[in-house]
């Protein structure tokens, strides 16, 4: 038989005996609740951030699906990397992602997070986000419209409900790999200085 067909068959069969079948009832219940309540960090990292306000306000109303904004990383479940991501932004995204509580998910928007997009030859922009952070769902387009973002969210919800996503676990298990890639572009000091300098010094607020 043809090799591609065999591989496809394998993929389909592996789906059947995935972890869903031997999930405890508590896990099942928790996944059900997680799926229905998604807090999105209010942090726009690129030009795609402009598509997020319409997604969350009256016109497209993501709240009817249980998706709503969260102001601080401590309370957020999802961080949206919306578009191109320069080194300087990547530092902040890594810091923010590491501050979020498990389980956490990353939704990546636009061509830029997939393969650099129109910034493919920029010296200051990373090309593949998944080298540095574990991405759960890509929404393609430049930029994706709110409809696409909602569809991405719904796909994410489905995966969460099935208990398939464990990217935060992947990040912890393969931390050496991610750290190596991060250090390759950001140098030894991956995260920005962690203090309230801007608040306490230099004139303050």
């Amino acid at each position: 038989m043809d090799e591609g067909f065999l591989k496809e068959q394998q993929v389909m069969e592996s789906d059947l005996n995935s972890e869903t079948s031997h999930k405890s009832s508590v896990d099942f219940l928790m996944d059900w609740f997680r799926r229905r309540s998604i807090f999105v960090l209010a942090y726009g990292t690129g030009c795609g951030a402009i598509e997020m306000p319409p997604t969350f306000t009256s016109r497209y109303d993501a709240e009817r699906l249980g998706i709503r904004g969260a102001a601080t990383p401590r309370q957020a479940d999802v961080i949206i990397v919306s578009g191109y991501c320069s080194y300087k932004t990547l530092r902040r995204i890594i810091r923010t992602y590491e501050q979020m509580a498990n389980p956490k998910y990353i939704l990546a928007l636009g061509s830029c997070t997939v393969n650099g997009g129109m910034y493919w030859d920029s010296y200051n922009t990373i090309k593949r986000l998944e080298d540095y952070l574990p991405v759960d769902m890509y929404v393609n387009g430049c930029m994706p419209r709110p409809e696409s973002i909602l569809e991405g969210f719904m796909a994410l919800q489905k995966e969460i409900g099935d208990g398939k996503i464990s990217s935060w676990q992947k990040y912890e298990d393969n931390y050496a790999f991610y750290r190596k890639n991060q250090e390759a572009v950001l140098g030894q000091t991956v995260a920005p200085a962690y203090d309230a300098d801007w608040y306490l010094y230099d004139g303050g607020l």
Partner: peptide, 20 residues
């Protein structure tokens, strides 16, 4: 410094970053 013309952006990208 990145805007000096001897700085080859494409070469830098190929050396430091990976494409899919």
């Amino acid at each position: 410094p990145p805007l000096r013309r001897e700085f080859d952006t494409l070469e830098f990208v190929n050396n430091n970053l990976s494409f899919r």
